[in-house]
């Protein structure tokens, strides 16, 4: 089975306010269909790694191969297309467009991709909302939902284009244990049914232990994987 993502001597430094190396010589690979978790203490570089892997942050040294392609050779627009089509992202904070309905929020990446008709996109969006138990909230404004619900909408949005890999930065950080369990099941199902890769940063030891693989970061270094 191929690697969806693979890094070679990946390093990243911040220059402001002082020179600080946040990622040190990281060599990891994630297989297609693998469900991995990244753990480590606060400030160890988990979020930083996730942003680099998900193509949002391009200020690094070394190489990242995504689906076989070296990302450092891609233009900004190419990266935007890759994110749109092949990557789903769930942030620590939900980040929805507050004035848009739940349904519209979920549709946004698909409308950009424009692979399906509007009708089909809406149909698919409802499927994803079903998966997360949100169908009855579809026509509500996003900012009218509770934090936990909004987080699940964000997950539905990450799924809409059926990406090859989904990144989550503490996606269950704001959820209660029941919802957290629910999200875990969804990720597991995505991996098993659709062979999607999942990489999730988490503080939740219980959550991490049940994933296929735990990558542990400490001071910007991978200390076990």
């Amino acid at each position: 089975m191929g690697n969806i993502i693979e890094t070679k001597n990946l390093s990243k430094s911040f220059h402001d306010p002082v020179e600080f190396q946040a990622l040190k010589n990281i060599n990891v690979s994630i297989k297609q269909g693998e469900f991995a978790s990244i753990v480590g203490s606060s400030g160890s570089g988990k979020s930083t790694l996730l942003y680099v892997l998900s193509t949002l942050d391009t200020d690094y040294t070394g190489h990242i191969f995504f689906d076989g392609d070296d990302l450092s050779l891609k233009s900004k627009n190419d990266l935007a297309e890759i994110r749109n089509e092949k990557i789903g992202f769930v942030f620590q904070f939900h980040y929805l467009l507050p004035e848009f309905t739940v349904l519209e929020n979920v549709c946004l990446p698909a409308l950009k991709l424009a692979k399906y008709s509007e009708e089909e996109i809406r149909e698919r969006a409802y499927q994803k909302l079903d998966l997360l138990g949100l169908r009855d909230q579809a026509l509500k404004k996003a900012n009218k939902l509770s934090g936990g619900q909004q987080q699940r909408v964000a997950i539905a949005r990450a799924l809409i284009n059926e990406p090859k890999i989904i990144f989550g930065d503490e996606p269950t950080g704001n959820l209660d244990s029941k919802n957290s369990q629910n999200v875990f099941e969804i990720f597991k199902e995505l991996k098993e049914k659709f062979n999607q890769s999942i990489v999730v940063v988490t503080h939740d030891q219980h959550f991490a232990e049940r994933t296929d693989r735990i990558i542990t970061l400490s001071d910007g270094e991978v200390i076990s994987q």
């Binding site: 890759i82 994110r83 950009k112």
Partner: peptide
């Protein structure tokens, strides 16, 4: 600004 960040994260280009 958060809207802009989300849109970019889900694949909207600078030109969009």
């Amino acid at each position: 600004m958060p809207d802009i960040a989300i849109l970019k994260a889900i694949g909207y280009k600078d030109s969009d």
